[in-house]
Design a protein around this nucleic acid. Structure first.
Length: 400
DNA sequence: AAGATGTCCAACCGCATTAAG
DNA sequence: TCTTAATGCGGTTGGACATCT
């Protein structure tokens, strides 16, 4: 361990010094920024070797990522961003980095802080974290037999602190994959930043205040870790898969339609963010407000489909291996369907035909990057943003 | 006015993963 | 193949400030 004795900028040059902690000074910021300008990002441990900074590499990286890097968006989250965070959290759980990838200019730390604050406030007020039409992260239908199983290894993920963890009434299935294993198929590809939108849920009910909101929606009060198991993961292949988009057609047409609409609405949301990336390429406005029945949200549809299959959802006994396998199948099913609907939407909306909407498929993987989204979505309709968003939910007192 | 409480935010810590030697 | 450093991520903490009582 290298030790420094620094206090914010003086260059002592001591052999034994203590790594500085605590708030960064302007001088440190400038030094770090200059370092990055000269050497680029990465190799953070070299900062203290090439500069007078007495900060560890991790600290430098964090400071750069959260405060100094260009294109950071400071200030409060917009209502639209807040909506997106809620939606993303309902899908991804506490995957802040992945959520941040959907919010240009925002950091995982910001999102995490926002969510934790919101979590505390809602818990204190006894309010649900999600609008009624968005099922909480990890929601599973009660007919799934593993709900009655004794604790699984996932119980080890129980968080000791209430502030940043949240549990729902339904037990949490065990994690399906090792941490970051999705890198192989998603995260390493920059295009991944948009792919989660393929399985996001959006419903018009989310944009309007539910009259029975307080009385009908479950209030969550227990705490539990939120493992990331929303990315379809193939246990056998070790990658997340998107396969055979047309192969999962055995969900009913109503769901198909509703899910299609929901996905469309959500893509609108994300694309609004992507607009920030679109400096040119202005073309015909593409924006449609669609409505979907409240009961036809993505999860209910997906799990109804899932629950209809004994093979997928009827877990017998406590065989964890079998359980993981089953859950993996569920995830693949979810993702396949959603991706299929995404593609279906792209096709039906006609965007495919103009060549701007490109979905890259590489064997089992599907990617659709922000730039593609941006180009798909001309940035000339800012005035319409508000019309798409009924602010009622956002304006609910004490909610957002 | 003062203390209590809540909110926001920056930063650190520990762990997991990856890459390099 | 193993070890180690670097990196990334999520959890947690604590200080500053705002608001409430």
């Amino acid at each position: 361990m290298i030790l420094y004795n620094k206090d914010g900028g003086s260059d002592g040059g001591e052999a034994v010094v203590v790594l500085k902690k605590g708030p960064w000074t302007a001088a440190e910021d400038e030094t770090l920024a200059a370092y990055v300008r000269e050497y680029g990002e990465g190799n953070w441990n070299a900062v203290r070797k090439k500069t007078w900074l007495a900060r560890c590499g991790k600290s430098c990286r964090l400071r750069w990522a959260n405060h100094l890097r260009p294109n950071l968006r400071k200030g409060s989250f917009s209502p639209h961003e807040e909506r997106l965070i809620i939606q993303l959290h309902s899908q991804l759980g506490n995957k802040w980095a992945r959520m941040a990838a959907q919010l240009p200019g925002r950091t995982d730390n910001e999102i995490k802080n926002y969510w934790n604050t919101r979590l505390k406030r809602f818990q204190r007020q006894g309010l649900p974290l999600y609008p009624p039409d968005i099922l909480p992260y990890n929601h599973v239908p009660q007919q799934q037999t593993y709900l009655r199983q004794p604790k699984t290894p996932s119980s080890t993920l129980l968080s000791p602190t209430p502030a940043s963890s949240f549990a729902f009434r339904t037990p949490t299935p065990p994690p399906l994959c090792p941490k970051r294993s999705y890198n192989t198929a998603f995260n390493c590809n920059p295009s991944y930043t948009s792919s989660p939108t393929a399985f996001l849920v959006s419903s018009p009910a989310f944009h309007s205040p539910p009259s029975s909101y307080h009385s009908t929606y479950p209030v969550y009060s227990t705490k539990q870790e939120l493992p990331s198991n929303q990315i379809p993961y193939s246990a056998s292949l070790g990658v997340y898969q998107v396969s055979k988009f047309s192969g999962n057609a055995n969900y009913d047409h109503n769901h198909h339609t509703a899910l299609h609409i929901s996905t469309c609405q959500l893509l609108e949301d994300v694309m609004e963010e992507a607009e920030a990336l679109a400096d040119s390429c202005r073309g015909p406005k593409r924006r449609q407000l669609m409505a979907a029945p409240e009961e036809d949200n993505f999860f209910s549809g997906t799990f109804r489909h899932c629950a209809s299959s004994d093979k997928l959802c009827s877990l017998q006994g406590n065989d964890q291996t079998a359980q993981k396998e089953e859950e993996s199948l569920q995830m693949n099913t979810m993702h396949d369907e959603d991706i299929a609907q995404l593609l279906d939407w792209g096709s039906e909306s006609g965007e495919n035909s103009n060549g701007q909407f490109s979905v890259i498929t590489t064997e089992d993987n599907l990617v659709l990057d922000n730039h593609q989204l941006a180009s798909l979505f001309p940035a000339d309709d800012d005035n319409n943003n508000n019309t798409n968003m009924n602010p009622s939910w956002d304006n609910l007192s004490g909610i957002c």
